[in-house]
Design a protein around this nucleic acid. Structure first.
Lengths: 260, 260
DNA sequence: GGCCCTAACAACGA
DNA sequence: CTCGTTGTTAGGGC
């Protein structure tokens, strides 16, 4: 499923295409919507798209009247461009936004788990993956000392945007074992993590922009260092261990220090 | 610890002795009181005891001004009659109520966990063990389908007054396994339970009145069918199984149908 | 074995 | 291999 880097690229590419367009119709065909379908139409139709941005693992479409439409793609969802004649025929359609210029944007999801939220409340205290500070991480680790670091990294109520794959990459880059307990990670470990987070994420964003410059769906993970089912050795030649941690498939190596 | 039948007898016996008496002093020596000790005195002194009743697993003393004093004996607490000269010397004293006629009533608890509440808010929607209807039980079972029946039976937010011992007795009488999941119990099982509840509880009350006619503390459990550490066989000759369910020691037999 | 609160964890449904 | 909900378990305190 898409994480922060993928979604950052999606948001930029969506912004290029739909910013400035005026919504002609909004059709919801999914299961998870936080308002009545009529309210969705009422709030969006005739509104101009002011901005498209990533918000954690969601994409937000900000309209010129302040309304914000949040889309969470969950595991398998994606965006597709279309036109107002064909968009409603798309398989696995979750949401269809038609524009006044006869183009359309669809959210599709074969698992039908993608969610749409109109003006959801957002907890501003939760930092984005690209905005995590040392002080914040120290505080979190002090408050939940017995939780594995990996669990905290992918908790969307702690940090927005980091998921299973990129948490493994970050932990490998910081040379910290995913099973380390937050309370046992020393200051230098926290430093390593805080440094690794933006390095890993920005590198991934750069790679994705280079390899899939127009992507608004799908995943590209070839360039990851350890979280890859095919790979046997880390870039530095250590065997990659594959284990379940909190029912998440986790890849790591013995290069990563275990603090317990 | 005392449950509905024990406490019913305690309440009746307390009522016989203290109803009509006027409080001369109230001294709290416990740990758990929901108001300031001064407020307790202020509310009770010079008030006449209008009624003593069981309320779930608590005993309530209703005063002539509407004030209600609730006492929860927890695991080991009990009442003791005394007089105003000696009541404050009682070991493990939690609460001493002296009356104008120089008699006194004490709450004692060697574990010091007994609690006293002045005018607590009572949720009237939660039925007493002696007032459970089929409709209510069906609703509860539908709302919490994945919870073991025993867990619901002893949940004081679901039914007031039934604890670990009598839930085992009721489930044996209804021939339903304590591990049955609420959502899987068919209508005839619910019927059996609703019938068993008052039968078991009233029978226990009768036995207690016969065996310990003046009791205001302590427990007498000889007459139970299965929840007895000494007993090996149920009254119908089946071996009694002793297991922990949700960290409660539970006694049952293979006569009891498991719905899962 | 009582109740309350919290945290951590597993299972399930959507 | 998501998220939210529900239930279970363990711990500390009273």
């Amino acid at each position: 499923m898409p994480e922060l880097p993928d979604l950052t690229v999606f948001a930029e590419n969506l912004a290029k295409v739909v910013t400035g367009k005026v919504v002609a119709a909004a059709e919801f065909r999914g299961k998870r919507l936080n308002v009545a379908p009529e309210e969705l139409s009422l709030s969006l139709v005739s509104r101009r798209v002011a901005a498209v941005e990533r918000a954690g693992k969601e994409i937000s479409f900000r309209m010129d009247n302040g309304t914000a439409l949040f889309v969470h793609l969950m595991l398998k969802g994606g965006f597709q461009f279309s036109d107002d004649e064909h968009v409603l025929q798309l398989p696995s359609l979750i949401l269809a936004l038609s524009f006044k210029d006869a183009t359309a944007l669809a959210v599709t999801d074969p698992k039908r788990l993608a969610t749409v939220n109109l003006n959801p409340r957002v907890d501003e205290r939760v930092p984005d993956g690209l905005a995590v500070t040392r002080e914040y991480l120290q505080t979190v680790f002090r408050q939940r000392p017995r939780v594995p670091v990996k669990t905290l990294m992918i908790d969307q109520k702690i940090i927005k945007g980091i998921g299973n794959a990129y948490s493994d990459e970050i932990l490998w880059k910081a040379r910290i074992s995913p099973r380390s307990l937050a309370g046992k990670v020393p200051p230098e470990g926290v430093d390593a993590l805080v440094e690794a987070i933006p390095v890993v994420l920005r590198h991934a964003i750069d790679e994705l922009k280079r390899r899939t410059p127009d992507a608004i769906s799908g995943e590209m993970r070839d360039f990851l260092d350890v979280h890859l089912s095919g790979r046997r050795l880390s870039p530095t030649g250590h065997p990659i261990i594959k284990e379940e941690i909190n029912s998440k498939i986790t890849y790591y190596t013995d290069e990563q220090r275990l603090y317990r």
